[in-house]
Design a protein around this nucleic acid. Structure first.
Lengths: 337, 337
DNA sequence: TATAGTAATGGAAACGTTTGCACAGGAGGT
DNA sequence: ACCTCCTGTGCAAACGTTTCCATTACTATA
């Protein structure tokens, strides 16, 4: 715990601190002999540079900030998040970046957290996962010209780096799958309407219905919130009406799984009585009973590419794209027929 | 992005930088008038202190390190982890601490990551989640006298702060539940034998069987690894033997859910033909079909209390316990009868 | 042989804070 | 009127790096 500094290394190696610094940063004009001396001293003393001091002068921290949005309780329950994080860490750590995590319970806390990190010069770039449209943070970061990336919400700011799926297309494809299986009475469980992803998936759904000439009964649009609050009643109403859907598209696999549970409790069989499809392809989609037909959105890739392109931008790489779309693919399982 | 410093604030407020610093840190001997002047200047300039500079001199970073262990692929798939993280963030952010995340793919990377954080003076304390017993990192941290907390592995180092469940007791209780339901032929799906938690849960299981005078057929001990590799075959062997268990205790809910899936595929009904219990009580335990009888280990609390006690220690609080046990409770659902 | 150029290194300032010490000025005690 | 003590504030050093500039000692060129 002796707090060995660059000076100690310098002394042991018999050189100046500047030289040690140069060895560390692989400066070209260091003689082979000196380099070795310094390296030896470093390992002998088990030297690790003080990142704070380093960042203070170099103005770079090799750290990426991540503020978990205030709707994150859902996100956290949802295995989606940890898989995204896994992808982010994989790329970041490989490039010797760390992740600095903060969470927020509301928008002002979120702003405060970003300010602390950004203005406090703690991070080189920041990932915004907050799925709510049009927040003040984005504008502020643009104003500061601070590097950031939007995860899961493209299209809003054309020149801003963002990584997302084409959720409209994914939803369109998934709906078409149901249609191709013979369904033309299809309901939907929608997510929080403030979320870009919810809007997109609803759009794609409607688009596919329209194209196929199916009508969408307004009674067949169920909000996830309502389902959570009063699942049994909601399901009963829907399924006991004289006109009822033969398939339901659900905005998220987690919700799809709980919907299936409700349906089974009310006495329906999946997919015999009704087909269910979800989104994301989380691990449980495969394991649940019945397994879920869904669209794999490449969760890991979403996280991975998010920090990949951010870091590419940070390191001054040219030709970094602005709008990155991670491809999706349909996964057909037992919950549809 | 003007990088406003303490000097700018000082100038605007018409005081010295030291005074500004004192206002920030709530130094007692600052006149009310000055305090106000400085505060006004700070908000006017939207000043946020440079954390790097601050940490450099104060030697504290208000950051807690978290190195995700190299067995973390399992952890990540497992929603356990994100719930732990949620608990950690809740407490940390509330106390104005951030979390610095690093991951490692093997033990040497793990050591390297800890070294970078600790010796690089980037964090004030570190959470070790690596569930493998007896690693070199713990010894090194003890040697450095650096604050840390062990999550999920008590008892190993008596004077080291650790937060854990009483997994032996939890497993004992859960097994007794099965016994009380009339089962006396009980199998077990064990986890990685290197993990402390696996060992503990196996111990509790055996203890309960022994106490009740049940015999444990060695054929009824299945490793999760084997199950994953060749589930169908493993299950068939087990269930088609002339002597077979009427209940199985599974080391983890995620594995329990996939075991149920295998069993159903091979043609057995749960709990009619065989009862299944799991561990942890993740969200899916309730939603899956059938829902899982399990033991709620307070995942969120595990994370919450881990950083709670670490921070208490960091802030020099007295009477911080060393071995914290988060209580568990049985949750009886549909997978048992 | 003088000159310029280059390779390798050291010295010192700077990054933005905190904090020990010094000091001005006023209050209170004698 | 003097001394002491306290309150509030400023100065300057320190934290551990990086990096610009200067310096030395060669080497190659004229």
């Amino acid at each position: 715990m002796a707090a060995v500094t660059i000076k100690d290394v310098a002394q042991v190696a018999g050189v100046s601190p500047s030289t040690v610094s140069r060895v560390i940063s692989n400066h070209p004009k260091i003689s082979h002999a000196t380099r070795k001396k310094v390296r030896d001293a470093m390992t002998k003393l088990d030297y690790h540079p003080n990142i704070m001091a380093k960042s203070l002068v170099s103005k770079s921290t090799n750290t990426i900030g991540l503020v978990l949005p205030y709707s994150s309780n859902n996100l956290f329950i949802n295995p989606f998040f940890s898989e995204v994080l896994r992808g982010m860490l994989a790329y970041a750590n490989n490039k010797n970046y760390d992740l600095l995590l903060s969470s927020a319970r509301n928008q002002s806390e979120e702003l405060e957290a970003v300010n602390r990190m950004v203005l406090g010069r703690r991070i080189d770039g920041v990932v915004l996962m907050s799925p709510i449209r049009d927040d003040v943070i984005v504008k502020k970061l643009i104003e500061y010209d601070f590097p950031f990336v939007l995860l899961g919400r493209s299209m809003e700011y054309p020149n801003v780096l963002s990584v997302n799926n084409d959720n409209i297309k994914a939803s369109y494809d998934l709906t078409n799958l149901l249609i191709s299986q013979g369904h033309h009475k299809i309901g939907i469980v929608t997510g929080n309407p403030e979320l870009v992803v919810s809007q997109d998936r609803l759009d794609g759904f409607k688009k596919a219905l329209e194209k196929a000439g199916c009508i969408l009964n307004p009674d067949w649009i169920i909000s996830a919130e309502m389902l959570e609050k009063n699942g049994y009643h909601t399901i009963s109403m829907l399924m006991n009406a004289e006109d009822r859907p033969t398939a339901i598209l659900v905005i998220d696999d987690v919700i799809a799984i709980s919907l299936i549970r409700e349906l089974v409790e009310v006495g329906f069989q999946i997919p015999k009585d009704i087909s269910i499809v979800g989104f994301n392809n989380i691990y449980m989609s495969e394991m649940s009973n019945p397994s879920i037909t869904t669209v794999d959105v490449g969760i890991y890739q979403l996280g991975y590419q998010t920090v990949q392109h951010l870091i590419r931008k940070l390191t001054g790489e040219k030709n970094v794209p602005t709008q990155v779309i991670v491809p999706h693919r349909l996964i057909i399982r037992e919950s549809t027929k």
